[in-house]
């Protein structure tokens, strides 16, 4: 698992120790390029923690460049040949407004690390949210397990699991699915 501290990337990008805010579109683009360089060295399937803990604030333009474009490039199975998963750490209310807005704009969702685990935020329908939460709770499950736990038809459960996997919110393993941020895997 890779850990990317955004404030460190920001300082490297701007060559300046003074800034802790992710503001302006050019800054966001430069930070994302740096992240993409780091991801280029990762394996075909990777899980990366994007850490906002030391970021003062992020504006809408920067959130669009970093969060939305990262997800648009990597977290859509149809558009990427890599399996790149992300979990976002240290996101506070100070960051959330901008991130929420870009997720809404592009119809995206992501996994947020919280004080008591992880949750999925952004644009997911009720069925997807319930399914993601159940997979997270069960730890590892397949379509039949999910259907049984939620009273879904097996085909519907398979469809929702596949959809969440294609959005890189669930990882598919040989014997089922695991929620990104599940199994305690990201708590370093």
């Amino acid at each position: 698992m890779m850990h990317i501290d955004l404030s460190s990337v920001l300082r490297q990008t701007l060559s300046c120790e003074l800034y802790s805010n992710l503001v302006t579109r050019p800054t966001g683009a430069a930070v994302r390029t740096q992240i993409e360089t780091l991801l280029a060295d990762s394996r075909e399937r990777s899980l990366t923690v994007i850490d906002f803990s030391h970021v003062g604030m992020i504006d809408f333009s920067c959130a669009d460049e970093i969060v939305a474009k990262l997800l648009l490039r990597y977290a859509q199975a149809d558009l990427s040949d890599r399996e790149a998963y992300f979990i976002f750490r240290g996101v506070t209310d100070d960051h959330w407004d901008a991130i929420e807005m870009v997720l809404e704009r592009h119809g995206l969702a992501l996994v947020l690390e919280t004080s008591d685990g992880a949750c999925v935020v952004g644009i997911v329908n009720d069925g997807e949210r319930v399914a993601w939460e159940m997979v997270y709770e069960l730890g590892r499950t397949g379509a039949e397990g999910l259907a049984s736990a939620l009273g879904f038809m097996p085909d519907d459960a398979a469809r929702v699991l596949d959809g969440l996997h294609r959005r890189r919110l669930l990882m598919r393993l040989d014997d089922g699915y695991v929620a990104v941020g599940g199994l305690g895997g990201v708590h370093a």
Partner: peptide, 10 residues
């Protein structure tokens, strides 16, 4: 870029 125009909206 579909992400543009969000600043004023925000």
């Amino acid at each position: 870029d579909p992400g543009r125009g969000q600043g004023i909206k925000g």
